[in-house]
Amino acid sequence: MRSPRTRGRSGRPLSLLLALLCALRAKVCGASGQFELEILSMQNVNGELQNGNCCGGARNPGDRKCTRDECDTYFKVCLKEYQSRVTAGGPCSFGSGSTPVIGGNTFNLKASRGNDRNRIVLPFSFAWPRSYTLLVEAWDSSNDTVQPDSIIEKASHSGMINPSRQWQTLKQNTGVAHFEYQIRVTCDDYYYGFGCNKFCRPRDDFFGHYACDQNGNKTCMEGWMGPECNRAICRQGCSPKHGSCKLPGDCRCQYGWQGLYCDKCIPHPGCVHGICNEPWQCLCETNWGGQLCDKDLNYCGTHQPCLNGGTCSNTGPDKYQCSCPEGYSGPNCEIA
């Protein structure tokens, strides 16, 4: 077999650049994923090309098998939009790539799955459409700058595939050579959905506090709520009108309100015997008056200043008058 000629994957630097851009600016990249293909086995019993010639040398006159050299087999892949009637021409609109030389006439790579040499990765940054057309071609490398490479066999497949970690196996069982391969579509990290176009990256910072479920939905951490999980859940009972919080379990009062639940107004400074319904009010309790509710309107009842059976009459805020019984006098009937 001729010395292998290595063929790198098509578009790999571009895919790395796209992945970097997506990581830095995830909101700009609407989708991100990759179409993967792995060659599993190849069977070319006679070492022939599609045109019937030998990959190298002439045929044995007896059994008609190619004798001089085995094929240097590598694969090309073209991925494009779905076609009900597949045409070989036209651009590979979803991507293209190739393997290096991975074997001779016949080989089996099932035991070495995950080997990069027999895998082609086609990254995409558009919403995966699920339906596709795939062209797979086996080629013989001439290892010659003058002699062109020659095609051994080709296969085409049109179908639908959803993103999954599971592989789907396909076979080419007609023509001079048979080969088996597997395909799958996977979303990149933080991308979800059938189109790999739903973005969700767990975070716990100013912009949100959430994890992501298997469908890419945000699940808020304990103590947080809202579409972006950036609204803290305040202390139970915290007034929704007069209290708020920036951290879970907190209850910060608005100006003019106080209390554990921010449901108590702050009265006017200096208010003595008054209450409030709104901040800075001083609504006097019964029998109290004045701007600060510090004037006693029922001095008689509060202090009972009249002595010796005198009768007390309220005459104004903090004022009274005693009517003394016979034989007593003085402001409080204290003089006998």
Rank of each mutant, 00 (worst) to 15 (best):
S10P: 05
G11R: 06
R12H: 13
L18V: 02
K27Q: 10
C29S: 05
Q34R: 08
L37V: 06
E38A: 02
I39F: 15
Q43E: 01
N46Y: 13
N46D: 03
N53H: 01
C55S: 03
C55R: 05
A58S: 10
D63A: 04
R64L: 15
R64P: 15
T67A: 14
D69A: 15
Y74C: 09
Y74S: 11
F75V: 14
F75L: 04
K76T: 10
L79F: 00
K80N: 15
K80R: 15
S84T: 02
R85P: 14
V86A: 12
T87K: 04
A88S: 12
A88P: 14
G90E: 03
G90R: 11
C92F: 00
C92Y: 05
C92G: 07
T99R: 00
P100H: 08
I102S: 06
G103R: 08
F107I: 06
A111G: 06
A111P: 09
N115I: 11
N115Y: 09
N118S: 05
N118I: 09
R119L: 09
R119G: 09
L122R: 03
L122P: 05
S125N: 02
A127V: 08
A127P: 06
W128C: 11
S131A: 02
T133S: 02
L134W: 01
T145I: 03
T145P: 11
Q147R: 03
P148T: 01
P148S: 12
S150R: 05
I151V: 13
E153V: 11
A155G: 08
S158L: 12
G159R: 03
M160I: 10
N162H: 12
P163R: 03
Q166P: 13
W167G: 00
Q168K: 03
T169R: 07
K171E: 12
T174S: 05
T174R: 08
V176L: 11
E180Q: 09
Q182E: 05
T186I: 06
D188Y: 00
Y192C: 05
G193R: 08
G195D: 07
C196G: 01
N197K: 05
K198Q: 13
F199C: 06
D204H: 11
D204V: 12
D205A: 11
F206S: 06
H209P: 09
H209N: 06
C212F: 02
D213N: 05
Q214H: 10
C220S: 01
C220G: 05
E222V: 12
E222Q: 12
G223R: 15
C229G: 04
C229R: 02
N230K: 07
N230Y: 08
R231T: 06
A232P: 08
I233N: 04
I233F: 01
R235P: 07
Q236H: 07
G237D: 05
S239T: 05
P240S: 03
G243V: 08
G243W: 07
G243E: 03
P248Q: 06
P248A: 12
G249C: 06
R252M: 08
C253F: 00
Q254E: 13
Q254K: 02
Q258L: 11
Q258R: 09
G259S: 03
Y261D: 10
Y261C: 10
C262R: 01
D263H: 06
I266T: 05
I266S: 12
H268R: 10
H268D: 06
P269S: 07
G270E: 05
V272I: 15
P279T: 03
Q281R: 10
C282F: 00
E285K: 00
Q291R: 10
C293S: 00
K295E: 11
N298D: 07
H303D: 10
C306R: 01
L307R: 09
N308D: 12
N308K: 10
T311P: 07
T311S: 11
C312F: 00
S313I: 15
T315A: 09
G316D: 11
G316A: 04
P317T: 10
P317S: 14
D318Y: 14
Y320H: 06
C322F: 06
C324W: 03
Y328H: 03
Y328D: 12
S329A: 10
G330A: 06
P331H: 10
N332D: 14
